[in-house]
């Protein structure tokens, strides 16, 4: 594991901001960090990066404890926290050089990163003249300067136009394919869904679900085999529904389609029941839950 967060807690005054938060991110994994406003996402990220000291627990990055071995732990970490604030009186290039020097990275790498984020034309202007989107790109550039093995991005698409968002998405996929572990926090679930391979859901400082985006392993669904949704197109939807209910299947009827929630191995049985009772079956296709659906389901179950 590149990132291991183990039972971290954080208290501000009398308020528990984080309680027993644990998750991990592996090489090549892109984890979406999802939660409503005030859930504790940014606080957790700040604890991971050593900006805040946890009351309990610890964070390991590449095996190094952030609290005890700060320098080594953050050696190959790149991050954007909230809006990346840079020095407005310096140019974009000078800002990047500030961080490049600390990482021991040369001007060549700075040039590469500038090209990756598409700021070559404006890189020598003062940052105070940059738009929000340009600052965001510069923020991404500083995060990837040191070729990090762990990339942490808090709302990275802020201010980016659609093409910028796509470029970022492609970049993240490329980095992940090269083995970089990525933790992305965002409100844009549709965007996260397109790039993330897993999701970690946090609410009120507590992790309520960690989801591989093909199936969900959450605290409310401990089955060994994942439950998926299958869309049945049938001739007599009411009769089909009655039969399936008798057999104990969970389903929803939406837009004249019968959506059956079941483990994969029980679907043939459902088909046999319907066909055996003379109900016409025109089509059957598995339907993937959107991230938004999963998130809403998990958060509603946790209430």
């Amino acid at each position: 594991m590149v990132l291991e967060v183990k039972n971290i807690s954080k208290v501000f005054g009398s308020r528990n901001v984080l309680s027993n938060v644990s998750f991990s991110v592996d090489r090549g994994e892109i984890m979406g960090f999802i939660g409503p406003n005030g859930a504790g996402k940014t606080t957790a990220i700040k604890v991971i990066l050593g900006l805040l000291r946890p009351a309990d627990g610890n964070v390991l990055i590449n095996g190094f404890d952030v609290a005890k071995n700060h320098d080594k732990a953050l050696e190959s970490v790149g991050a954007i926290i909230e809006s990346p604030e840079l020095y407005p009186y310096l140019s974009g290039r000078e800002n990047l050089m500030q961080f490049a020097r600390i990482h021991g990275v040369g001007e060549e790498r700075v040039r590469e990163c500038v090209e990756i984020v598409g700021l070559s034309a404006r890189i020598d202007e003062k940052v105070r003249k940059y738009s929000l989107g340009m600052r965001q790109r510069l923020g991404v550039a500083q995060a990837i300067l040191n070729r990090p093995s762990l990339l942490i991005l808090d709302e990275p698409t802020n201010g980016l136009d659609p093409s910028g968002i796509k470029e970022l998405r492609d970049m993240l996929k490329m980095l992940a394919s090269q083995g970089t572990a990525i933790l992305v926090s965002s409100h844009l679930l549709s965007e996260l869904e397109q790039v993330c391979t897993s999701a970690c859901i946090i609410e009120k400082g507590v992790i309520i679900g960690v989801q591989k985006l093909d199936n969900f392993v959450g605290e409310t669904a401990p089955e060994l085999e994942p439950v998926n949704t299958y869309a049945f197109t049938v001739g007599n939807i009411e009769a089909a529904a009655t039969l399936l209910q008798q057999k104990g299947y969970q389903f929803d009827i939406i837009d004249n389609l019968l959506f059956v929630n079941s483990i994969r191995s029980k679907i043939p049985t459902a088909v046999s029941v319907l066909v055996g009772e003379g109900i016409e079956l025109f089509a059957l296709e598995p339907r993937k839950k959107t991230l938004e659906e999963s998130y809403l389901e998990v958060t509603s179950n946790s209430i």
Binding site: L51, D71, L74, P84, E85, Y87, F99, H103, Q142
Partner: peptide
Amino acid sequence: SRKTINMLVIRPVSR
């Protein structure tokens, strides 16, 4: 005041 402190402290160098 500029909030650039975040960008500084997350580097691999001690406070």
